[in-house]
């Protein structure tokens, strides 16, 4: 079917063979790796959002000690390379978990790569999300919150009905950026030996010596992920901003 194309472009047939979805092609491995990457990125992003929400609320409403501890967390995590945090949290997390299990008289367990990856990247994402969400919550018009309070809303209702919906459009650009960081940071787990897209690619490239083919293919997969999610976030943002006036919204 594609024969005319193969005669037109020499080398294309071998490339297609290498990338084929069934062995001996490596396309299936690449796609499985991509799926694992997406899984970890989604988990880490979700965990980051939860941590970030509590972190932002703690920084804004917490006592002095909470605030100081939270700034230590955000400063350290944002200044130390992710790779080192991954190693520290991975080793320390496994150690602590096994010590706790031993204390309870259980057998030590091997931590699954996915869980460790999500936990580690989620901790990193949490620090960035704290700052993004804090900025967005601070930018919410104070009058809105006072109005909510005047209606007798409790703090939870106030957050759910007033603060959250009005801060979301302000936070979305930062959150979309964080999601892109999460998808790309999953590549770091290749270094601790977790089979996500980058490591699968390296194994495929190493065994076939077709470095350009596989690295470019993986690059295309990553690029597709980031471009598609950029579109999705743009769409969500447009949706949440639909009630707002044009570029001159809000106060001057």
């Amino acid at each position: 079917m594609l024969d005319w194309l193969y005669t037109l472009v020499p080398g294309l047939e071998t490339t297609a063979g290498l990338l084929s979805l069934h062995p001996p092609g490596w396309g299936g491995n690449l796609l499985r790796g991509a799926l694992a990457s997406l899984q970890i990125a989604a988990g880490a992003f979700g965990m980051g959002l939860v941590l970030g929400t509590f972190g932002a609320l703690g920084k804004l409403n917490g006592g002095p000690v909470t605030r100081d501890l939270l700034s230590v967390y955000t400063t350290v995590v944002r200044a130390v390379p992710e790779l080192i945090l991954i190693l520290i949290i991975y080793y320390a997390g496994t150690d602590l978990l096994n010590q706790a299990l031993r204390a309870m008289g259980q057998r030590p367990v091997e931590v699954s790569g996915v869980a460790a990856g999500i936990f580690v990247l989620g901790t990193v994402q949490g620090a960035y999300a704290t700052e993004v969400l804090r900025g967005a919550i601070q930018a919410v018009d104070k009058g809105q919150i006072e109005a909510g309070r005047a209606y007798g809303m409790g703090p939870i209702t106030l957050f759910r009905r007033v603060t959250f919906p009005s801060m979301l459009p302000l936070a979305l650009p930062g959150l979309s950026n964080l999601w892109l960081i999460a998808t790309k940071d999953t590549a770091l787990l290749a270094i601790v030996g977790f089979s996500e897209l980058t490591l699968e690619t390296r194994q495929a490239a190493g065994s076939t010596r077709a470095f350009f083919t596989f690295f470019l293919a993986a690059g295309a997969i990553y690029l597709t992920m980031t471009l598609v999610s950029g579109r999705v976030f743009g769409w969500i943002e447009a949706r949440y901003r639909r009630g707002e006036a044009g570029p001159t919204r809000g106060h001057p």
Binding site: T198, R202, A205, G206, L216, G219, L223
Partner: peptide, 23 residues
């Protein structure tokens, strides 16, 4: 800019090192 920002640096690094290095 889109390609650089849309792919992990580790992948770019390995593409350049292993790819160019073998070429």
């Amino acid at each position: 800019c889109t390609v650089i920002r849309g792919t992990p640096l580790l992948l770019q690094l390995w593409l350049i090192y292993f790819g160019l290095g073998s070429l």
